[in-house]
Design a protein around this nucleic acid. Sequence first.
DNA 1: CCGCATCCGTTTCGATACTG
DNA 2: CAGTATCGAAACGGATGCGG
Lengths: 220, 220
Amino acid sequence: MPTTRSYRERCPIARALDAVGERWALLVVRELLLVPQRFSDLRRALPGASTNMLTDRLRELEARGIVRRRALRPPAASSVYELTGRGRELEPVIDALAAWGAGEPAPNDGSLTATSVLLFLRGSLRANPATPSLTVELALGDRIWTLGARDGEIEVAHDAPDAADATIRTDPETLNALVFDPGRLDAARAEGAAQVEGDVAGLRALLESAAVSARSLAGS
Amino acid sequence: MPTTRSYRERCPIARALDAVGERWALLVVRELLLVPQRFSDLRRALPGASTNMLTDRLRELEARGIVRRRALRPPAASSVYELTGRGRELEPVIDALAAWGAGEPAPNDGSLTATSVLLFLRGSLRANPATPSLTVELALGDRIWTLGARDGEIEVAHDAPDAADATIRTDPETLNALVFDPGRLDAARAEGAAQVEGDVAGLRALLESAAVSARSLAGS
DNA sequence: CCGCATCCGTTTCGATACTG
DNA sequence: CAGTATCGAAACGGATGCGG
């Protein structure tokens, strides 16, 4: 049964925590921030969450107008969960948490989802005004993403770009390592952990731009 | 016994929530954001939190380097809890939550602390670039605060200003109402809910500036 | 296989009472 | 004032089962 407890404060901070302060709630929002996901996608992304926990959180978030459930077109006997407009407004909260959390110690056995890495990469690039303009096609697992950097505006979308300057195929682990240490790019390519095509120098410069912010966040 | 569970993710968002995602943790940070507080101050500010809950959270936050316990000078047989530098870095998280939470429904029986109102007032003024420059002395309960607005820089401090343009003595409830509807200022003064001295017109303009942001936040 | 509902042991929460 | 002790209630976490 969904959780209903409240801090019973009129403070907006407490009200926000009443809505998304339950355990797992903000991680569900995080996973849905870049792309709608099915129940089983969320399970894979949040292996520590039990099924009934996920069901409860999704129901609560739906009841609060943060998440919406949408049926897929008839042939697919499934549905996806996606953020509502109100849910997307949580992005600044997620971004602030990511910036702060980068300074906390990481469990060395921790998992890492594609969404996590992409959000952190995006945040790092946004934090660096000198980020070069470039459109990158990112293939992580079986999903294709577009990373667009243009005049300091950084966007990540779950689709293939019309025209990519560079293409990289890798996994979240490797991409995360590259965000902190772009110097590993050649080693990752040699090991087969990453395949790169197109403007390799541009991609390298983009990663360097992210690394500047990423390292300063982690160091604080 | 303090909580030790973790999401076991290397995602910075999950790491942040590992540190401050437990129930009540961020409300403790909120209360300490503007001024160090004693245990009993926190109890009053968070009446829904049981004493052992507060003890647990304070110990955890202390262990994580977010809160520090400081003994007061000898005559006072007491100590205060205050944020560390790392703890103060949570301010953007708190601000983002406040901005989002203003759009959530408020329980009509909810309490409201001075800190809550001051943080929201500060956030509203910061969100409005047209905020007039003014120094206000704010007396809430038995505490004196300084609200300084200068060239768009808004600061709230727990002390008396060197020189105030205006002085207002009221309670958190009334101040919160004024942030949304400055038109009530005269009524509040007539009812004795607020006493104002000095540049009343300036204070009124400042409240109007806050109200513009406050209403747009609540309306979204 | 997907999306849940049910059951159950464990942890955390919340309220009250009590102590240095 | 600043906590500890205790205990029932709620939430969490994992396993299993069941209808599409």
